[in-house]
Computed example of a mutant assay.
Amino acid sequence: MYKILLADDHPLFREGLRARLSLEDDLDITAEAENGKQAWELLNNDDFDLVLMDINMPEMDGMYVLELIKEQNIDCKVLMLSMHDDKEYILGAMRHGANGYILKDVPGNELIAAIKKVISGKSYFSSEVTEILSNELSGEQKAILTRREQLVLRLISQGLSNKRIAQELNVSVRTIETHKRNIKQKLDIETTIGLVRYAIDYGLDK
């Protein structure tokens, strides 16, 4: 059974979410907080697998609690729940280390899927959030890479081997390996799988 802390200042929302999660055998809201200060105190006195946290809360907002969680290396995943689809909120949550960001009006099944995915160690961003991120970040990331590196990354994301990419671009395998190494360094990604995920997440695979 996974232990979940729910932090939101709207009692009716907490009640509805608690009722929905009670239908899941492996998810349990073991504590609730109506403001950021309470959430932080609970995090310091108990262990949780996941925090479901609103951004706008009294006394201490969710973004600040998220920052504290990451600064203090608290072993707990964080899924931000918000009505805000503004890019400033979304990018802020990402920069502070949120494992996911989902809008409060998503269907219940999607919310459950998001919770389970984040608990499993993966990230989750609702479709609306992903579109905003793609539009905002793809241009920034493309600017980091040269045109040739962008092309190599796109071919990598399509599952092509170094040898096949070299054939496609009419260059040596060693040249592709050099491009690949440079891309990893620029994006601070260690594995090829990481490059593929990155390209897909930020629309660099097309």
Rank of each mutant, 00 (worst) to 15 (best):
I112T: 05
I112H: 01
A113M: 07
A113T: 08
A114S: 11
A114Y: 03
A114F: 08
K116Y: 07
K117R: 13
V118L: 06
I119M: 06
I119A: 05
S120L: 10
S120W: 02
S120R: 03
G121F: 07
G121W: 06
K122D: 15
K122N: 15
K122C: 12
S123V: 09
S123M: 11
Y124S: 01
Y124G: 00
Y124W: 08
F125R: 03
F125Q: 03
F125Y: 15
F125I: 04
S126W: 04
S126I: 07
S126D: 13
S127R: 06
S127G: 04
S127D: 14
S127N: 09
S127T: 14
E128P: 00
V129A: 01
V129S: 01
V129K: 00
T130G: 08
E131C: 04
I132Q: 08
I132C: 11
I132D: 10
I132E: 11
L133H: 00
S134I: 10
S134W: 07
S134D: 07
S134M: 14
N135C: 09
N135D: 14
L137D: 04
L137G: 00
S138K: 11
S138C: 11
S138Y: 05
G139V: 08
E140Y: 10
Q141T: 10
Q141L: 15
K142E: 11
K142C: 10
K142F: 13
A143C: 07
A143T: 09
A143E: 14
I144Q: 07
I144E: 12
L145H: 01
L145W: 03
L145G: 00
T146L: 07
T146I: 07
T146Y: 06
R148I: 15
R148N: 15
R148E: 15
E149D: 10
Q150A: 09
Q150P: 01
L151F: 04
L151C: 05
V152P: 00
V152T: 05
L153H: 00
L153W: 02
L153F: 03
R154N: 14
R154V: 13
L155M: 09
L155I: 04
I156Y: 03
I156W: 03
I156D: 01
S157T: 08
S157R: 01
Q158A: 09
G159L: 04
G159Q: 08
L160W: 03
S161C: 08
N162M: 12
N162S: 13
N162A: 12
K163E: 15
K163W: 08
K163D: 15
K163V: 15
R164Q: 15
R164Y: 11
R164T: 11
R164A: 15
R164H: 13
